[in-house]
Structure formats: structure tokens, C-alpha cells
């Protein structure tokens, strides 16, 4: 599904240069569940953002579905992104002024889709993640776990094939964390590719492959035996 070749990312702020990613080479196939791990500041979020096309690499190539997108324009990237990729953030990033169903609908708002169909899809997905009874609540009235479920629903409501999750359980207690992980696992078993950044070894166990980063390098890639 995606492939990175000698990809690097350099941050330049005033006089300090930070090499966030250094010559990364990875490949992720459709249907995989990959965890990215590593100490704080090693470049995990940076990598995920580049995968999600929210950020661009300084050097190297990035193939998405065999298409080299390294030199795509902002609007081309935006097109690919909204059809294929869903995001889940540590801090949920729901819009405070919108209620649950409106927050989920937001992901469809920028697709060409009839209103009726949008509503149906939102209702469906809310059932699926078990948040339907809270449809009219505002984010501030929900627990962290519930908010993250809304975020997951929002990430997949547009039938996105790839879900990028940056420490999705970072702000949750272990019970709620577990809940979210199971939900991701369920999605993965239905064919969704998932790339997740996490600090928790328990949660990385849900993934079939773990990429360990250190100081912008891929150190090891562990493949877990299936089953």
C-alpha cells in the first residue's frame, strides 16, 4: 500500500537543525496492522504525519498505492488523503462547537455525497462504535474513551482504507485503552490497514508488526507470528 525510500525530514528553526527522520526505508502492505514505537522525540509523529500527507518529507520518495507522491501539490495530496486516510489523535481533536454526529459527519462533508446518505452512514458508524445514544452530546460532555470512539468513527466513516493513529490511547485509562484497541483490531480484521504510534508494549501487541525508531532511524522491525 505504501513504500518509503531513503526518506528524511529536517526541521530548521533559526539556528538549530533537527533531523527528525534519517533515511527511512519502510514498506507497509494493505491489511497490515503496524505499531511504531520508540522513545520520545525519536520522530514517530513526524513519520506518521508524512505517511498521512499532513507533512512532506525533505528528501526521499514516498509511494502511495504505487504512485510517487513526493512532488504532489497540496490540493492533490488533499484529494488522496480524504479518500484513503483516516486520523486518530491522542487529544481526540473533536470540534468543541459541534455535537457527536456533526463531528463524525465532518469527515463526509468534504466528499461529494448526498445529505441523506451522509446521515445514514453516520448513523451506521455510530451504532458500530456504540456511541449512538450520545449522538446529540457535545464533546465536553463525554468521557475520554467516548471521545476517542467518536474520533475512530470519524476516521473510518468515509470507508478509509488506511487509519493512522498517534498514541490513540495516550490520554485513556487501561480499560478505555483496551476498548479502543479492540475496536482498531476489529477494523483491521475487516481489511483496514492500520498504522499506530504507541508507547505501550501491551497495545503494540495488537499489531502484527512493530517498527522501532531511534533518533530518526529504523532500528528493528519485529514481525509477530500470526495466531
Amino acid at each position: 500500500m505504501l513504500k518509503m525510500h531513503n526518506l528524511s525530514k529536517l526541521y530548521r528553526t533559526n539556528d538549530i537543525e533537527t533531523i527528525a527522520l534519517n533515511c527511512i526505508n519502510i514498506e507497509i502492505d494493505t491489511g497490515e496492522f503496524v505499531a511504531i514505537m520508540g522513545p520520545s522525540g525519536c520522530g514517530k509523529s513526524t513519520l506518521l504525519n508524512i505517511i498521512g500527507m499532513l507533512d512532506t518529507a525533505s528528501e526521499g520518495q514516498y509511494f502511495f498505492n504505487d504512485e510517487d507522491i513526493s512532488n504532489h501539490s497540496e490540493s492533490q495530496l488533499s484529494q488522496i488523503r480524504k479518500r484513503n486516510i483516516g486520523f486518530i489523535f491522542q487529544s481526540f481533536n473533536l470540534i468543541d462547537e459541534l455535537n457527536v454526529s456533526e463531528n463524525i459527519e465532518l469527515a463526509l462533508l468534504y466528499h461529494d455525497m448526498a445529505k441523506k446518505e451522509r446521515k445514514d452512514r453516520v448513523a451506521q458508524i455510530m451504532d458500530k462504535v456504540g456511541i449512538a445514544h450520545r449522538a446529540k452530546h457535545m464533546p465536553s460532555q463525554l468521557s475520554g474513551g467516548q471521545q476517542q470512539r467518536v474520533a475512530v468513527a470519524r476516521a473510518v466513516v468515509g470507508n478509509q482504507k488506511l487509519i493512522l493513529a498517534d498514541e490513540p490511547t495516550g490520554n485513556l485509562d487501561s480499560a478505555h485503552g483496551q476498548e479502543v484497541m479492540e475496536m482498531l483490531q476489529g477494523l483491521n480484521s475487516e481489511g483496514t490497514t492500520i498504522v499506530m504510534v504507541t508507547h505501550s508494549p501491551t497495545h503494540s501487541d495488537y499489531a502484527r508488526r512493530t517498527i522501532n525508531l531511534f533518533d530518526g532511524h529504523v532500528v528493528t522491525e519485529n514481525l509477530r507470528a500470526t495466531g
Partner: peptide, 16 residues
């Protein structure tokens, strides 16, 4: 900015 950031991640373009 936060709200607009989210909208952009969801695929809103500049004009929108």
C-alpha cells in the same frame, strides 16, 4: 485554528 486544522485534515479545501 484548531477547528480549521481538523476540517483540513478531513479534506476541506482552501476555498471552503
Amino acid at each position: 485554528t484548531k477547528e480549521i486544522g481538523i476540517r483540513k485534515v478531513m479534506g476541506a479545501n482552501m476555498l471552503q
